[in-house]
Design a protein around this nucleic acid. Structure first.
Lengths: 165, 165
DNA sequence: TTAAACTTTCAATTATTTCTGAAAGAAAAA
DNA sequence: TTTTTCTTTCAGAAATAATTGAAAGTTTAA
């Protein structure tokens, strides 16, 4: 897979976006590459296209599988692993929402809940108590909203959007 | 401001969360500190509480002002700057949404739009064209949703949440 | 078996980000 | 003016994260 200039620019853009959102740049680039490829790619092809090492390609491809954004595919008569990205943007968005909720939001909700039980009810902690309560309530709301989104279909999103406006 | 163990834990938790979301850990910690303080704090107090250098305290406090999460306050008869965080979680959430939209989402939307105009209409770019179109459409939807959220009040959010469920 | 073709791991290296602290800058007080 | 008190900047140091590449591990074929 030899990238045209335009394709490289896309891969680059996606990498920058990912990076801004706290995602490894290479991981985002591998994802971009797979997104615009019409067939599944081997590790070798990813290494070539993105000029990265074998270890890096392998690690990031598997991280993407972990995130549920990419699937590993076997081609009969070929011993190599091939990777292919899910192409539906709604599926992708939902998957990312799901993973971030699990990995980043839920731990905070638990940590805050724990903090709440441990918190002395004295005046030194009065301000903190307010903040922790507020943030906890808010986080749970966001959590529920994301959960709903994860289970939704595209159509639901459109309808909700309409209702919102 | 000498932190109790519980307060330290909160600051720590907030720092970890921020870090996960691609935000500088210290910046998140300074924010947490200001969130649970009932009065505005001086640079010196932030340095003490978080065990960080003057430069670091100053830089991150000002970054928070940049993000619109913190305001600089002057106390008459005192030459020092004091910093105080906005306390309302809805205001905070909206402000973060606004900033991330501006800083991270809009650049991607422009980059994709530009890409779209430059993209050759040949078969080598067919797959990419589909992806770029889909992502672009989706990004604009999210952009609009965030814009709506930014201008909303707490009440609107609750109502929308209800409608969604 | 043994060899071949691939994948995975991980210690060492490289790159990036963050932090420090001292120096320079700015504003008020003496 | 000069001094004092505080803020800001920024080059270098430290910490963290990402990447490499070679060796070890696996699986299939010969």
């Amino acid at each position: 897979m030899n990238l045209t200039e335009t394709q490289q620019k896309f891969v680059q853009t996606w990498g920058t976006l990912g990076n801004n959102w706290g995602i490894n740049k290479t991981m985002a680039q591998v994802h971009a590459l797979l997104l615009i490829s019409e067939r599944a790619l081997s590790t070798e092809e990813m290494m070539d296209s993105l000029q990265i090492s074998r270890g890096n390609a392998n690690m990031n491809a598997r991280a993407l599988v972990d995130w549920g954004l990419v699937t590993k595919e076997m081609v009969s008569g070929d011993r190599r692993d091939f990777y292919s990205a899910k192409k539906d943007i709604w599926v992708i968005a939902r998957q990312i929402a799901k993973q971030r909720r699990q990995r980043e939001l839920e731990p905070v909700i638990s940590a805050l809940a724990e903090l709440r039980t441990e918190m002395p009810k004295d005046s030194a902690h009065a301000e903190m108590l307010k903040r922790v309560n507020d943030i906890q309530d808010f986080s749970i709301k966001v959590d529920k909203m994301l959960e709903k989104f994860e289970k939704s279909d595209e159509n639901w999103f459109y309808k909700t959007l309409l209702k919102m406006m």
